[in-house]
Design a protein around this nucleic acid. Structure first.
Lengths: 205, 205
DNA sequence: GTCTATAAAGTGATAGAC
DNA sequence: GTCTATCACTTTATAGAC
């Protein structure tokens, strides 16, 4: 009944570890990193706080592991999209849709990232967050700039501000979107893309 | 040299109080509410932590006072705009522009509100945040619904999702906008309104 | 209005028994 | 893998001197 050994596959590192990480992620997202104590996590898991340290070095390690898992997955998908040779509008739509799907599939991790990245980057351990932020910027700005050049997007916009606008709108929905609710993430993504690409104003005005 | 007495005007309650509140607001916005200790605030003010309690009941009181001051001002302006009888597009533009100006003028308070409102509303003391949230929603939804009815805004959008989109885009810029920087808040507001109303896509496509 | 001094509770983390 | 027990430190807040 012990999980098979002799492999480094992290998915094998006992279900308990993943279980505890999931409980921690939920609490971190709900209450904030600082406001969630190791005792809170242990309580929610039905064990004592000291027992958590059999699985993890520190509270910080848990955060690290949660964010790395989520970001590895997300950027894998981003790189695939950009490499697939779609036109600019389709590429942008795919990037936005993938981001919304991440909000749905990794809600806690996205919430933690959005709320805490500002404070985490000051910590050397989380230097990779800055690197990924740079890659994110290059990916999205590249699509925008190519789209302005080929006439897909308006030439009179400030590309830098448009980038921030897109980045922010793609992620801020994590604040109110609830996975499993009546509004699906695909509906939200389509609506948001429709507004951001074609505008809220009636076309005949 | 003592400030004039015999009035309840809170602006008269000694410059020191406002000064301390401003120091606290800056730290709260930078580091987060929970991560900012009363010692941090006292240090920044050049006094000892115990001395802070001569001016304020608690750390929570400081937060309360910071948010109330900001929100009273903001909603005063919102109410004026809606009462002034502009058409729907102009009303929406004025609401958005006023919000961006608040990011510029009350940067710390906006940042604190955005980061902490989710956790604060659970506290009875901050019940007014929920009430103002309802008023905000009615104000903005009213403009959107009127605009859809009179043909200013597209009829094929989900008004509820459009409201969330507008609300989020109006406030999320506090995360990167820095007052006194090279980009003025008016530039940002105009760009964002242009994207949200007319869209990012080229009109001839 | 600020300082000295300190209480009372909470926090992350460790060592070793079971 | 979890518990017992506990350490070292931080945090909010108070009481009274100056």
């Amino acid at each position: 009944m012990t999980p098979p050994q002799g492999t480094d596959d992290s998915a094998n590192k006992s279900g308990r570890r993943a279980e505890l990480l999931d409980i921690a992620a939920t609490l971190f997202a709900e209450r904030g990193l600082r406001a969630t104590t190791v005792r809170d996590i242990a309580d929610a898991a039905g064990i004592l706080s000291g027992s958590l340290y059999h699985h993890f070095d520190s509270k910080e390690s848990m955060v690290d592991e949660i964010l790395r898992g989520f970001l590895d997955d997300l950027f894998g998908k981003y790189r695939e999209i950009v490499a697939s040779g779609l036109d600019c509008r389709a590429t942008l739509e795919a990037l936005v849709t993938t981001s919304y799907e991440a909000i749905d599939a990794s809600h806690s991790a996205v919430a933690i990232y959005q709320d805490e990245v500002k404070h985490l980057v000051a910590n050397e351990r989380f230097a990779y967050l800055s690197e990924l932020n740079t890659e994110f910027r290059e990916l999205w700005m590249g699509v925008l700039e190519a789209g302005v050049k080929d006439g897909t997007f308006r030439a009179d916009i400030d590309v830098e501000l448009a980038f921030r606008f897109l980045r922010d709108t793609a992620w801020v929905a994590v604040r109110w979107y609830r996975p499993g609710g009546s509004v699906t993430v695909d509906t939200v993504a389509k609506q948001y893309l429709s507004i951001v690409l074609d505008g809220l104003a009636s076309p005949h005005n």
